[in-house]
């Protein structure tokens, strides 16, 4: 949450990625954020073992959107038993590509002085929504026509009571841009665009009917498999 403005994009709460029982006492919980155009993996590392932990390092497996650590994991002091530290790892998108199932799955290896540990986590696709994702209006109209209807996916966003303008503002904080708004038969139709870090564009039509808490989201994208993940991020952003 927090106050409005361009830096208030949606951040999921931290979840446990590596339970201590699976990692000889090391517990890692984390989340992903996009801040000022950069992606960060924010983690809490807890030492639940009886010995000091040192020599931390992190690696990602190849993944769908080329996520890779932008720098080594910076942990400057040994992690004492019962100690927890917060770490923010800068992440870039110039790693190697390998399509994962699910698409947003990230396999991570973490080592310390005790052993090497592996875990998987899921990142919300909104960390990949770039700041220049506002499509030119003419290009939007042409692209919307050009993408065949087989590539249109529809989803219901349930139990949402925001106005069309509140929806636009909230989504824009997460780099989903409203290009046009029309009211037809009392329904607000928002035309929106976003662009992923790998250059994939997603076009959206969000239909809001007065008195109806269920919005209809139509997504058009040449890469069809991203649509369910985009829907999930719409839900999270709007319900946050």
């Amino acid at each position: 949450g927090g106050v409005g403005g361009p830096s208030a994009s949606y951040i999921a709460p931290k979840s446990v990625w590596l339970p201590a029982v699976k990692a000889k006492g090391l517990e890692i919980s984390g989340t992903f954020v996009r801040r000022m155009g950069s992606i960060y993996m924010e983690m809490s590392l807890s030492n639940n073992a009886m010995q000091v932990m040192t020599d931390f390092a992190i690696q990602f497996n190849k993944n769908s959107f080329c996520l890779a650590p932008a720098a080594p994991l910076q942990i400057n002091a040994p992690l004492a038993p019962n100690q927890t530290i917060e770490v923010s790892l800068a992440v870039n998108t110039v790693g190697s590509v390998m399509k994962m199932d699910p698409l947003n799955n990230l396999q991570v290896a973490v080592k310390n002085n005790i052993d090497v540990f592996y875990f998987s986590c899921l990142y919300p696709l909104n960390i990949l929504f770039v700041e220049d994702g506002k499509m030119d209006r003419q290009v939007f109209l042409a692209t919307w026509k050009d993408i065949p209807s087989e590539n249109e996916a529809q989803f219901q966003i349930k139990d949402c009571t925001l106005s069309a303008d509140a929806v636009s503002n909230k989504l824009q904080s997460s780099n989903i841009f409203t290009i046009a708004k029309r009211t037809v038969d009392g329904q607000d139709m928002l035309y929106q665009s976003l662009k992923l870090t790998n250059g994939i564009w997603v076009l959206a039509e969000l239909r809001i009917q007065p008195g109806n808490p269920n919005y209809l989201l139509s997504l058009k994208c040449r890469a069809r498999e991203v649509a369910p993940h985009i829907f999930q991020t719409y839900e999270k952003i709007l319900k946050n």
């Binding site: 209006r137 003419q138 109209l141 919307w144 046009a180 029309r182 037809v184 038969d185 329904q187 139709m189 035309y191 039509e205 239909r207 139509s218």
Partner: peptide, 20 residues
Amino acid sequence: ELDDGLDEAFSRLAHSRTNP
């Protein structure tokens, strides 16, 4: 505001989507 015909095009799109 500059009328480049796009405002009208978006109106047509919205109408076509609500009354296919």
